[in-house]
């Protein structure tokens, strides 16, 4: 490949990566015979996590379509994306990985989205052995930030430790300063999986440092019945709750919190607990609930305008349930102020 197209591919790759929450670390050096870049997407459209994930896939797929149809691909090379159903199960993500790791139609695998923290844990060593970069935005194994130890794992934007830190800092901000945290009670309600447990070490350290009481309450997978947990919350009477749930457990958590009389504006969710498709079904119960986001809120960005014009309004969007958008506009939207991170 000539050096010029290699350089311009890097540039295109960087642009593509930032918006689709992925970063192609090391450009995909395609063989001369490949005409498309193969990108497999291990998605989940079935199961308790499907509602959280479907908005994510819509964003990714709409953006890929935009690149293919409006921009003509990355330097002329179109993206050939393919979906595989995994139901958020790490087993099945590993199966998908094994299936796709040799690429397709001459295009090798440039990187692998894991779309789930347990899957990242399962694949981190395999990917290092196969020399395939794993991309896990706002998640993954926090230790993999150290590229010298984990050269093929790329946790982007946030790690779980930084999410924990941001959350606690925001709480401190609300309380009037980090020193005001002393003696307060912060309960973490977490989904009992690699995902939910990922912030525990960080919160523990912060609790030691700033003197607040740290209580962790697990919610068993898939978390569709949480009365015992929130009854315990009511018993503990904490000052704040850090919500580390995903999928249907978020909806149920917010609704159960209301049932047990815990105010929603004292609940701070992490990045994955802040999905619109989880908050809208909670309805009134979610008014005042806040969650972290790795990007500024709203739809006033240029990329949104471009996507809207070419993809959404042209009817090519992957957004299955436009209801989600419409419902959100018809109903009184729960106010979601996002903490900057």
């Amino acid at each position: 490949m000539s050096r010029r197209s290699f350089a311009s591919r890097m540039l295109h790759g960087a642009v593509f990566a930032t918006v689709s929450l992925g970063m192609v670390a090391g450009a995909a050096i395609s063989t001369a015979s490949a005409t498309e870049q193969y990108i497999p997407l291990p998605t989940y459209r079935v199961g308790p996590y499907a509602s959280s994930g479907s908005l994510w896939w819509a964003g990714t797929i709409d953006y890929f379509r935009y690149i293919n149809e409006v921009e003509g691909g990355i330097d002329g090379i179109k993206i050939n994306f393919e979906e595989f159903e995994t139901e958020w199960s790490p087993d099945r993500t590993v199966e998908v990985y094994e299936r796709v790791k040799n690429g397709k139609n001459g295009s090798p695998l440039a990187f692998f989205f894991t779309h789930g923290t347990p899957a990242t844990y399962a694949l981190i060593e395999k990917a290092a052995a196969d020399k395939i970069p794993l991309i896990d935005p706002a998640g993954g194994r926090t230790e993999s930030i150290d590229g010298t130890v984990f050269p093929y794992a790329f946790p982007l934007l946030f790690s779980y430790y930084s999410q924990a830190s941001t959350g606690i800092n925001y709480i401190a901000q609300k309380e009037g300063g980090l020193d005001k945290l002393k003696g307060k009670k912060i309960v973490t309600v977490y989904h009992d999986s690699a995902y939910g447990r990922a912030t525990q070490p960080a919160v523990e350290l912060l609790a030691e440092k700033y003197g607040f009481e740290n209580i962790q309450i697990p919610v068993a997978d898939p978390g569709n019945e949480q009365s015992p947990q929130w009854r315990r919350v009511r018993e503990l009477k904490p000052d704040w709750i850090f919500l580390r749930t995903w999928g249907v457990s978020t909806v149920v958590a917010i609704k159960t919190a209301q049932r047990f009389g815990f105010p929603a504006d004292r609940i701070i969710g992490d990045v994955w607990a802040g999905s619109e498709s989880d908050v809208i079904p909670a309805g009134d119960a979610a008014k005042g609930y806040q969650a972290l986001a790795p990007y500024p809120g709203g739809t006033g960005f240029e990329i949104h305008d471009r996507l809207k014009k070419h993809i959404l309004d042209a009817g090519k969007s992957d957004l299955r349930d436009h209801e989600v958008l419409r419902r959100g506009q018809l109903q009184h939207r729960p106010s979601e102020r996002r903490a900057r991170g």
């Binding site: 199960s89 790490p90 087993d91 590993v94 347990p118 844990y121 399962a122 060593e125 395999k126 999986s193 690699a194 997978d221």
Partner: peptide, 9 residues
């Protein structure tokens, strides 16, 4: 087969 698994498998 998998390499690593939790009880969810």
């Amino acid at each position: 087969y998998l390499g690593s698994a939790g009880v969810q498998s």
